[in-house]
Design a protein around this nucleic acid. Sequence first.
DNA 1: GCCGTTTTCGGCCCGACTGTTTTCAGTCG
Length: 587
Amino acid sequence: MKNPQVAQIFREISALLDMEGVPFKPRAYEKAAASIAALEDPIEEIFARGGVKALETIPGIGKSFAAKIAEFLSSGKVADHEKLRAATPVDLDRLLGIEGLGPKGIKSLYEHIGVRTLADLEAAARAGKIRQVPGFGEKSEQKILQGIGFLQARAGRLPIGAVLPLAREIEARLGEIRGVKQVAIAGSIRRRKETIGDMDFLVVASDPALVMERFATMPEVAVVHGRGSTKGSVRLSIGMDADLRLVPAESFGAALQYFTGSKDHGVACRKIAIEKSLKLNEYGVFRGSRSIAGRSEEEVYAALGLPWIAPELREDKGEIAAALAGKLPHILEYGSLRGDLQTQTSWTDGADSIEAMARAAKKLGLEYIAITDHTRSLAMTHGSDEKKLRRQMADIDAINAKLRGFRILKGAEVNIQRDGTLDIDDATLAALDVVGVAVHSHFHLPRKEMTERICRAMRNPHADILFHPTGRVLGRREPYEVDFEEIVRVALETRTALEIDAFPDRLDLNDDHARRAVEAGVKLTIDSDAHSAAHFPFLDYGIAVARRGWVEAKNVLNTQPVERLLASLKGGPGPGRKGSGRRHSQR
DNA sequence: GCCGTTTTCGGCCCGACTGTTTTCAGTCG
């Protein structure tokens, strides 16, 4: 998989061209880099299949870029890249990480005082040499030193689960300030991206200065980057920036639309505005100098001839075209899950008893949960063997007899062994309501072997769901190498559901995979992977992934009441077990 | 350098804030 290297080279060329002041090309390289990074298939395979012509079908890749990719694949280098790097041999990646320092500044520092590395930069700043470079002064020198300090403390992007609770707390706090009329979280948090780079807040207030003052002096603030009359920017102690915008009420919707992004979605919207001889900015939609919309997002989209688009869809991945055609998906609503099909208890590595889990789930409005403790080959979790599972089933029967209006399903998170077989015998699996299968070992098998292993597990007639299908853990473990298209094909063929594991550091499937799966007609489940009674709210993160993946309620098995759910699981007692094909006939 | 249900040429989003500048470029989102 050479996609990351190719994307990195394109990103670097973009920055190097930016340095030279070349117009437009840097954006083209940047777009191509993003496009390549987002590819599912290894770029070397695309090239092997169809040569440069196949490369040119990738969005943002034309003749010239396709040739550069081919050049890299055959030689490991791109001549233009080498040439640019030789002209300005600096550690771009690290230097660009300094807040406030961009391509132009880096070039100037290199040319005037020979700064090439972060160490050079720090030495020059300490020696007072930066201030002698044109365009820099005493203050920028201080900012650079501070920036170097922050570079070490920076958390980078954090999983949404680690950011959203704090963002909501700040939102609530801003809302309590005297004279505040409206508050909103914008940016990637509102779009529920899986990782977050910074926080964006929007406020309408009668006393903006007071709000700015309170914002800049919150206890979480480590440093204030800037503070104007309408915009404030701070670094929080968790190593993340937070921005505040103060906007007039008549612009709130336009500002919300603008600052929710994504950037690409915004660009696409502003292009539509231009086509209609309108102008869209954060203050509203304008015809000439007259505002025709801005108070609400609905109003703004309507002025562009579009229905309101859910924030999770705003990634410029076809939502504009769908909106124009009146074909936006009816994406899954928050709170629309009736059950949770992956939970662990104190029988293995969970914290709480079966009954405590059931009561917590019921309190949150769920109608059923499946208990899916680990199985025996996962020894460190005291995984269940057949005997232990039978005992647990009896226990569940006893608790179910006590519960009103709630059902505990018997399940297991069955380990997929290296050869693709399961570590629980078929007779026991047949007695379970819900069988999830999952990879927990041998993460580094070759792509083909890993794919075959997982597909073999899905072919087990009792395997209802493939849990956390790609195995990634955000910030800790990359997804394993697997042919996802083949997983989708076999899931469809065997009527195995794929899971969106909603545990905040998993989110697996991700949004793009979920979208691909439902496009193919595969059913999904969204599960919390709860390891304690406090984890059920994680389901919302899974719903967010589903929404970003254009998933509708009909695509998700656990939006159904328990009897219908059981009937629609492949290993369940319901109709269609032999695979009449009826289920997927609409595709 | 890419792209096209108004285009194969002529576009390519838009504004706030800062610092260093005597009127604006660079950076950021």
